[in-house]
């Protein structure tokens, strides 16, 4: 299972998504590798990913992908993350 968290620079907000996604996956008892990346390299880093986590603002920039694109509104709301990850992975 591979999950990629995407932001504009690949070093800022994606890190928050990554750490909170890891917390939720731990709670759900799901084994997954979560990496932080940027929109410019998403086609490479997410080529074999099942899920892409990102902001509503960046969905268009990601373009065509085989992964499920999961849009997170509040990066600090673990229950939103949990519900959306569970729906995407279940």
């Amino acid at each position: 299972m591979k999950i990629v968290a995407i932001c504009g620079a690949g070093i800022g907000t994606s890190a928050i998504l990554k750490v909170n996604a890891e917390r939720v996956l731990d709670r759900l008892d799901i084994e997954a590798d979560v990496t932080a990346s940027d929109v410019a390299s998403v086609q490479t880093t997410a080529a074999d990913a099942q899920v892409i986590l990102t902001s509503p603002e960046l969905v268009d920039a990601i373009g065509a992908t085989n992964a499920d694109v999961v849009v997170i509104e509040n990066y600090f709301d673990l229950s939103e993350l949990e519900a959306k990850l569970e729906a995407a992975l279940g």
């Binding site: 932001c7 907000t13 928050i16 603002e57 960046l58 920039a61 990066y75």
Partner: peptide, 8 residues
């Protein structure tokens, strides 16, 4: 990239 930095 737009307002994606508004994370909450």
């Amino acid at each position: 990239f737009g307002a994606y930095i508004v994370i909450a």
